[in-house]
Amino acid sequence: MISNRVQSILAFTLSRCLYFGLGISFIINKSNNLSIISTFLGFIIGYFILYFLTKKNYYDFFNTLIGKIIITLLSLYIVNYCAIAFDILSSNFYLTNTPNILIVLPFFILIGYGVKCGLPTISRLSEILIIISVSIIILIVITFIPNINSNNYFPIIFQENNFLLSTLSTTVFSTTPIIILLSLIKDYNSKSILKGYIFGSLSIFFILISIIGIFGSSLANLYRYPEYKLLQQVTLFDFLEKQENFLAIIWFIDLLITALLSSYAVKKATNNKFNIISIIFILISYIFFINNYQNALFLYNNTSFILLVFLIISIFIKKKKAT
């Protein structure tokens, strides 16, 4: 039995996980200064979709064969994204000379170990790590407020297609990973999950406001990882500079917890075939995505559409939650 607090924490983490290296950069690229309005709208739409989703019984549906296939595919897609993001973060900013295989292999071993320990261990880990994550997010937002220049939010030029795409992407990025959590918990508490979603969305919203307020949309567009570049501007107490390597732990935490939870969902859906599926998945993920930048770029451009399919399927599942 997972407590309501842990459900909130996991929903918080899952709603944020797709933003590092993907969501923030993608949304700013599509809608520039308009991205603040589009993400806000996307989060609100996401809230109502999630409210609707939490009224259904996904736990039982995902115990059916079709449900197992859907959740396995969704979870593998998200684990794959986490592995790519983990590799990119590590190889670009920390372990620049280490081969990719040595970066992702420990990540997969850690995930495998975590999955073996089970959901209670993952929950406990998330409870511990969330304290670090939330403290750093608060610290970052407070540090950035004096550097925000309100002129950077203008001009807001409305482009209908891009606005719709970034709103849709925000909704998809924030809500789809939470479906995994809904499939794992039998009697989930709607309020707790929605609470986690709101705080997760707010944290991303504040980070986006900081990125555009400090860099402006043109400079934010120039960076491949504006969310990491933002951390480079943090100066703690006027003398602690260049803390970005430590502060980026917030993204590591999101990726780790999400990968653990998604892998656990795969294990639950595949039972005794988990080991063989894992090995095949790791090989495919490493050869076709982690080691192939062009394919990773394909995911960058199309993740919102691919996950939208999963979200639509989930919306049309007809099983209702027992009251």
Binding site: T98, P99, L110, Y113
Partner: peptide, 16 residues
């Protein structure tokens, strides 16, 4: 053994 491998690889010994 798993722990030792993780410690060596995750602490960035390769880039040390």
């Amino acid at each position: 053994l798993l722990l030792i491998i993780l410690i060596i690889l995750l602490t960035g010994c390769y880039d040390y």
